[in-house]
Write a protein that binds this DNA or RNA. Sequence first.
DNA 1: CTGAAAGCGCTTACAG
DNA 2: CTGAAAGCGCTTACAG
Lengths: 365, 365
Amino acid sequence: MPSQPTKTKTKRAATLADVGRAAGVSAMAASATLNQARTSSRISGETRERIRQAAVKLNYRPNIAARALATRRMQTIGVAAVVDGGELNYYFLEVFNGILAAAAKHEQNTTVFSLHNWGADAARLPGLCDGRIDGLILLAPTWTAPESVRSEHTPYVSIHANSVLSGVANIETDEEQGAYEMIRLLIAQGHRRIMHIAGPEGLTGTERRTRGYKRALSSARIALDPSLIVPAGFSAGTARTALRQWLRHHPGHLLPQAIFCVNDSTAIGCMETLAELGLRVPDDVSVAGFDDTLVARIAIPQLTSVRQPLREMGGKAVDLLLARIKNPNEASGSSAKSLVFPVDLVPRASMAPPPAVDRIVPVLR
Amino acid sequence: MPSQPTKTKTKRAATLADVGRAAGVSAMAASATLNQARTSSRISGETRERIRQAAVKLNYRPNIAARALATRRMQTIGVAAVVDGGELNYYFLEVFNGILAAAAKHEQNTTVFSLHNWGADAARLPGLCDGRIDGLILLAPTWTAPESVRSEHTPYVSIHANSVLSGVANIETDEEQGAYEMIRLLIAQGHRRIMHIAGPEGLTGTERRTRGYKRALSSARIALDPSLIVPAGFSAGTARTALRQWLRHHPGHLLPQAIFCVNDSTAIGCMETLAELGLRVPDDVSVAGFDDTLVARIAIPQLTSVRQPLREMGGKAVDLLLARIKNPNEASGSSAKSLVFPVDLVPRASMAPPPAVDRIVPVLR
DNA sequence: CTGAAAGCGCTTACAG
DNA sequence: CTGAAAGCGCTTACAG
């Protein structure tokens, strides 16, 4: 009894025709009842039950390739992103979770196109995806060739696009406001000398964050000190280098009371550099990041940051995309508008009122 | 000239028949040359060129649903994993990157099935995936219903399975050896009183790590002190609670010189707890983690850990799966064997020789 | 209310 | 060496 030789080798999977035959009806009737189509109402309850049982007994699974061919819908959405070992990781994962959940809710599959960059590599996209997906979500595209993406048959939605693509809805966040509020919070705590570690030039996101920084200072009538805006990149390494160099060039000057960084990784880089010099966070210097990624909660002390509702944004992207797939003609209409999500301040231990006595930039060896 | 009204509305995508017609040949000839089939050799070079140009001009893209229906291959592999906001994140991302890269190399698509758990939720798998993928990679399944996965038409491969499924190749790492070597390293540095924060019971991975710990102590003829094995979970929180409780119960005792944790998160939890008590890492206590996740490099001090070659493992899973898809009859043969990858010690600043003077467990408030 | 037919776009034998 | 035909499994009009 336990050992039946299971010579399943090439047992063909059951088709709708098989199910129909077993239930004594046509394949079409089987299709209608199994898909709960409106047309199934015209099939008697008893017959439907018979069909269902036959399907179970035969272990029937619809062949989705055949269905897709007939309906011209793949029930699949694509996600294109640059997923490398770098900064984007946690960002991607959060958005991706939101996408997966929403896709599952709508019974859609998700397939991922992993790009190395948004240039030549992304140009392959239309060829890769046309036909195998019904629509595509572009994750943080810094698109260099906007034209090449305009496939004629596949609708797109983008999240955090560097520049909005014509006819493509974009989902983003109010990064400027996030930066603004963070600086306002620092000011409310008594900070005046606030350094800004800025991100790579030419990226909308980093420019917005810098703009929020400037606007907050201006609104509090604090004169902008351009030497306190320190260009760096997105990584901890660039921030370490940039901050060290700045300190080296300003020995004996007043130390900034706080550092507002373009993202969490650069904030970590600053914290490391400060620690090396024996400066304590937040006792001597407060530090703030952006994005509220994993690293913010892991850092010691934990990092104050600006949270973006990444999961919700991923889910919203799916909703928008499916709406557009259902009604492609609206593409150039109102649904192409951008959607801006609010951001939240997440205060943690890396921020405190400035020290009573001003700190001086130590002399570096 | 710039503004042509682009009324693309329902322009049908070009088919193979269209291409053939445009080139003055049959759809079959077009298929053969465009797919570089062996049969294309019988088509003259000139004709082939004509066909290719027609394909380009018509912007021809193969309809993969039709192709899949004809070939009975979806050119798609599935990945099933529990991807929540927890510990698995970084692990998943690394493996996933390896899978994506290997899949792209073989021109395969990847679709992700996001599960909430490996119980009832995973039982949906066969229904979900049968037919839409050619094979499935199970990521760290702690399978409770091994039978239900045995789809008759879909080959499986697992990574870090909790228990090897019959006929399913499993890719894993030598976790016991990793733990063993970590403890040997601590011993070589002079540590003798080594605490072990253990993971959830019943999981193969955590049991192997504990086994490596014990074997290393034994090999160095250090008597096992069972009170130094502290059961916790996988999260920083469980480790904080477990370590605090242990300290509370051992006031005035000798402090462990080192703590070997089942993973990086629990190591972080220990570091936080030690910091709260004013104990410094590694000056007073050394700490070691496992998995070498993101958090190990972010922690201050950086965490010594055991690295697993996750990307390579993801790539290998794809290779194995594709081999099995091509030749399903080998399924019960040698290809079902498990593959064990080696692990690496990654020494960082959280480890140092033990303090010259033994530390005492402080009295907790 | 029901089933037979046609068609989705491709590939794989199979005649010429 | 080449093309016409059949078929993959489903769904959608369309006759009865």
